[in-house]
Amino acid sequence: MKRFAVLLIAASALFLGQAQAQRVNLLCSPDLAWCEALGPAFKEATGFDLEFQRLSSNDGLARLRAEAANPIFDAWFGGTGDPHLIAFREGLTEFYEPTVWDEIIQDLKDQVGGTYIPLYAGALGFVVNEGVLDGKPMPQSWRDLTDPMYKGLIAMPDPNSSGTAYTIIATLVQIFGEEEAFEILAGLHQNIAQYTSSGSAPGQLAGRGEVAIAIQFMHDGVKFAAQGFPLVSYAPVEGTGYEIGGLSLIANSPNRDAAIAFIEWALTPEAQVLAGELGDSYQIQSNMNTPAHPLAPDFAAINLINYDFNTFGTPEVKERLVGRWTNEIFPTPR
């Protein structure tokens, strides 16, 4: 009995014994390499420690919701804007106006209003492995994708699990109107080899030759190309939609001061250049003074649509469009 008691005390002290110091707990949604580059640079600039958990923006929102009553994270860095917007509307995050607010690109600020801080922007496009096309022409427009010659050669993310896929649907609806957009999606469905659960997986499939054409964000295509995959990324001629990556302060965060210091730092050009230099991430950064990385897709050369984040970011619209896709397109036999 005595021995048992002693053992119990020792055991509980052993594996429960861990104190937490003051530091930023970061929910980090972009590329892992970018997340890894943040910690040391932030420590050098401000002296604060930083620990991060990399979760895709959807996983991140799920975690924030699950932990809403008692948040673990202090700030949410990166990831597509829709989940940031939802988190803000649900009171999971709060809007913080950074001192460098004036240096943030005006268009991006107009789009998101006072919900979250724009961190970067990235446009949708086609990521193509020409070798797998076997001489077929590269698709130039959204409509080209419905051509039967591409049957089994296209991959896109699954709208039921990926925010990128929803951005694709919302973009098509904004360019063509809802009915025509769903016609295109139906035609596209006939050519799809695989709906992937993650937003950047289609580009990998294309890179390894499992498919020829991936529909996804161009900067991810650029990243895979930089890794050595034989891929080219470009935007369709009808125009394309884009995402605004977000940066948010978590409501009731345990280390609020450190979180604010991080947000201030993360928006400086010195911090934002890390994305391209160390982070394998080639989005357009939100601070207008941040020099664009040479590999980053040039927004001036892309026909960007005037993406309506306020309408298409609401859960109701999203649920309706994804629901329509799930009921009308997904069950269609191929």
Binding site: D59, A62, R65, A66, I86, N160
Partner: peptide
Amino acid sequence: YLSLTGRFNP
């Protein structure tokens, strides 16, 4: 997993 993370529906 996906209904929790992709569709935010616990």
